[in-house]
């Protein structure tokens, strides 16, 4: 091995070790979490107000033109007129689930009780689905923060399905020309000045539409109020003119879900039972894409490192190919 070859290999190994060293402490290599746009729109879902009527599920289907789901066994009975989806899917963008325990006597109690929870896209502040999409089919609006999907761009790779920490985007596997289905916060209705269908139809104000920062204050007010005191719960849109729904303040869990989880989301969940029991997992504050993007950025910044390596490789390969070709010709 000649000198310059040895020198290149040495520095290449050194560069690899240097690249690996910060990898050891994940936090050093992360980029910062992205931040919430000041006017971002979102939803406050108060599990204690939800009565499990599923009006939001039906309204969501109508507003977004997705078909009903009927178990195969019952599909002969009044086809197309009723809906019993089990979870969000290629045909169902939101769903209400119920938590039950023991005798199921008390609403919003973890012990011997039950509680409802609504499931759909959380419109993450720093969304994995947007970061991983190779063709910019998932996008986050810079002003409203709504995460939308463009089927004309989408190649159907399903990385967003795999990567979403909440399992939200769903591909329509039963269709030869399937699409990704996902709650887009009824962006089309909002453009016409309407509310998202689920917040519009909710009779108790459990699903409440509004500006995220204001919804946050509303959630904090509820948590600060004394259990048992009467409270005017807004309906439809926070700050709108609909008649309120008056009810007693329940015993809330102290955590507001969606503020810090995976870098924050634009949905807030408050509830009477621990969020984990409602299928809202404990998640770290750093967004998942802050790590993957941090690593990629370190390795490929401006393509400088790859180009430098290419130069070194070309130099070494040039010498060897010349030698081998000469040998071949002599043979």
């Amino acid at each position: 091995m000649n000198k310059s070859r040895r020198r290149f290999l040495k520095s290449a190994t050194g560069a690899m070790a240097a690249a690996a060293a910060p990898l050891e402490s994940a936090n050093a290599i992360r980029r910062d979490n992205k931040t919430l746009p000041p006017e971002a729109l979102g939803m406050l879902y108060d599990s204690t107000l939800c009565i499990g009527c599923r009006a939001c599920v039906t309204a969501c289907k109508e507003a977004n033109d997705v078909p009903v789901e009927q178990p195969a066994r019952l599909s002969a009975w009044n086809p197309g007129t009723w809906d019993a989806g089990e979870d969000i899917s290629g045909k169902t963008l939101n769903t209400i689930r119920v938590y039950t325990h023991g005798s199921k006597e008390h609403k919003d109690k973890a012990e011997n009780g039950y509680a409802f929870v609504k499931r759909h896209c959380l419109h993450c502040v720093d969304p994995s689905c947007v970061s991983v999409c190779p063709v910019s089919a998932m996008n986050k609006d810079p002003d409203t923060g709504i995460v939308t999907h463009d089927p004309d761009a989408c190649i159907g790779c399903r990385y967003c399905v795999y990567g979403c920490p909440f399992g939200v985007p769903q591909y329509q596997f039963d269709d030869a020309f399937g699409k990704i289905a996902k709650c887009q916060f009824c962006e089309h209705l909002q453009k016409q000045g309407q509310l998202p269908a689920c917040c519009d139809v909710c009779p108790t104000g459990a699903s409440l539409f509004g500006v995220v920062t204001e919804l946050q204050q509303e959630a904090e007010r509820r948590l600060a109020a004394r259990p048992g005191d009467m409270y005017e719960f807004p309906r439809g849109r926070l700050g709108g003119d609909r008649p309120t729904h008056e009810a007693a303040i329940p015993e809330y869990e102290s955590h507001i879900y969606g503020v810090t989880e995976v870098g924050g989301t634009q949905i807030r969940y408050i509830s009477g039972v621990p969020h984990e029991k409602l299928g809202l997992p404990k998640l770290p504050d750093a967004s998942p894409s802050s790590l993957s993007e941090g690593v990629q950025h370190t390795l490929y910044k401006g393509m400088i490192a790859p180009l430098a390596v290419l130069g070194g490789l070309a130099f070494l390969a040039h010498r060897t190919t010349r030698k081998l070709q000469q040998e071949e010709e002599e043979e």
Binding site: S131, V132, P134, V135, S136, A153, C157, Y159, S292, Q296
Partner: peptide
Amino acid sequence: YMRPSSVMLE
């Protein structure tokens, strides 16, 4: 359409 943050694109 390319999104550089996507490892899949690379």
